[in-house]
Simulated assay, not measured.
Amino acid sequence: CRSLFQNVIWKHKGDRPSTLGDNTLIVDWMPQKDLLGHSQVKVFVAHGGTNGVQEAIYHGVPVLGIPLFFDQYDNLLRLQERGAGKILQLADLNGRTFEEGLKEVLHNISYRQNIQRLSCLHKDKPMSPMDQAIFWIEYVIRHKGARHLISEAYKMPWYSYHSFDVVLLVLAVETVLLYAIYAVFRFLCCRRKRKTKTKQN
């Protein structure tokens, strides 16, 4: 990061690395959403968690991703396929590959253009989330609790709601099948024993 012209904000716990440049600010915590919403943020280096990727898309910030586990690689791959981010594999990560990846996302304008296009698609809704919440609150008030929207599941008996009746039916069918298989094997074994005894006599 020392060779970069840009300033860097790094969430890091522990001692400050001795090789760190003066352009890097280390913080224990910072509101990520507010940081990504700042107009001067150029690149978001992240592990590819669902929330971070969604916030990056919303604010139109290209992502340099280093996936670790679970769904992170898949999340970042979706961005990379749309030209809005770049993946660095942990096994290939070193100072040179990190710097090259970071400079590519910083200086190739297509990454920012593609993520901003995704941001526009994401935000293009008939009404804002706040207006939608206000509408549904007022709707429920106008219709005195909106009983017609309550799920029919609330009228089901507890054993149906928790699928105990289905579980009992499946267990009953399995029991009958197992007993039938056991009876067939027992019949065949008894028949074989009788034939053996008959031959011996």
Rank of each mutant, 00 (worst) to 15 (best):
C1P: 06
R2M: 02
L4R: 01
L4N: 02
W10E: 01
K13H: 14
D15A: 14
D15G: 12
T19C: 11
D22E: 09
N23I: 01
T24H: 00
T24G: 01
L25T: 00
V27F: 05
D28N: 15
W29H: 03
P31W: 01
Q32G: 11
D34N: 14
G37R: 03
Q40N: 15
V41D: 00
K42G: 03
F44R: 00
N51S: 13
N51A: 14
V53G: 13
A56V: 04
H59T: 02
G60Y: 01
P62G: 07
L77G: 00
Q80D: 12
G85V: 02
L90E: 07
L93W: 03
N94M: 08
N94F: 08
G95W: 01
F98C: 04
E100A: 15
L102V: 00
I109M: 10
L118W: 03
L121T: 07
M127Y: 10
P129L: 07
D131E: 15
D131Y: 00
Y139S: 02
L149H: 07
Y154A: 05
M156R: 14
S160R: 13
D165Y: 12
L171V: 13
E174K: 12
F185W: 09
L188D: 08
L188Q: 11
C190Q: 12
K193C: 10
K195H: 11
